[in-house]
């Protein structure tokens, strides 16, 4: 266990974004982080939560664990592969996919690799566990087909964003079928277009994306 990040970011860093000091780290461990996948651990005994905090603090003592790959080359590859058609970095880029400006704070290297090699295998989920950027093909009762990404849904309505970035809202009574593309991200499998070294370079670049100070 090196704290290099799974679904969440690497914890092997001197200063954690959400928990720069011990008090805020204890608060994050106790209460989770609202609006993210970080859960509360109130169920654990207090001494265990303290022990977790102590362990996490040791992870940051050493210099940040290096990620193999060259971030500068990764940046070039990111541009060459036209990732910005769908992704924004520091205000520039497309919006079909998630904003990557702070992806280095949110995701570890292993998860980034998985997203590049098997984009649909582990879709990102919101705090309630609903898949984000979920592809949906919806057929209305008059036979119209609308494809897009799910924006929101309840038992009575669904909202989609199509690939031209238009919002569509339907009452479910107007809809015949809603086909949901779990494990079917619309992102191409870049992992197979890059060499192993190039993949490392892109991941190294993404890891540096920590938002503008």
């Amino acid at each position: 266990m090196q704290g290099l990040g799974g679904v969440g970011p690497s914890l092997a860093r001197p200063v954690l974004t959400q928990a720069p000091d011990l008090a805020s780290l204890l608060a994050v461990i106790d209460d989770g982080i609202r609006g993210t996948g970080m859960p509360s651990t109130w169920m654990l005994p207090k001494k265990d939560r303290r022990a977790i905090a102590g362990f996490v603090r040791t992870l940051g003592v050493a210099a940040e664990a290096p990620v193999a790959g060259d971030p500068a080359r990764g940046r070039e590859l990111f541009a060459k592969a036209a990732c910005a058609l769908c992704h924004t970095v520091d205000g520039q880029g497309g919006v079909k996919g998630p904003d990557l400006s702070e992806v280095g704070n949110r995701r570890g290297a292993a998860r980034m690799r998985r997203m590049l090699t098997e984009p649909g295998a582990e879709m990102s989920a919101n705090a309630d566990g609903y898949a984000e950027f979920l592809p949906v093909r919806l057929t209305t009762i008059d036979g119209r087909v609308v494809e897009g990404l799910r924006v929101n849904e309840d038992g009575f309505t669904i909202q989609l964003r199509d690939l031209e970035n238009r919002i569509h809202s339907f009452r479910k009574s107007e809809v015949n079928e809603v086909a949901k593309g779990f494990v079917q991200s619309i992102m191409p499998v870049f992992g197979s277009m890059f060499s192993a070294t190039e993949l490392d370079d892109v991941i190294a670049y993404l890891t540096t994306l920590r938002g503008k100070k």
Binding site: M43, L44, N126, G129, Y130
Partner: peptide, 25 residues
């Protein structure tokens, strides 16, 4: 399942859960 030590006024649980949620529920 974990150990459970009774300390008055603190959680006495002996474990916890991770619920399936979102699109799985």
């Amino acid at each position: 399942k974990t150990d459970a030590d009774y300390v008055p006024g603190t959680p006495f649980l002996g474990g916890g859960e991770q619920a399936l949620k979102g699109d799985q529920a």
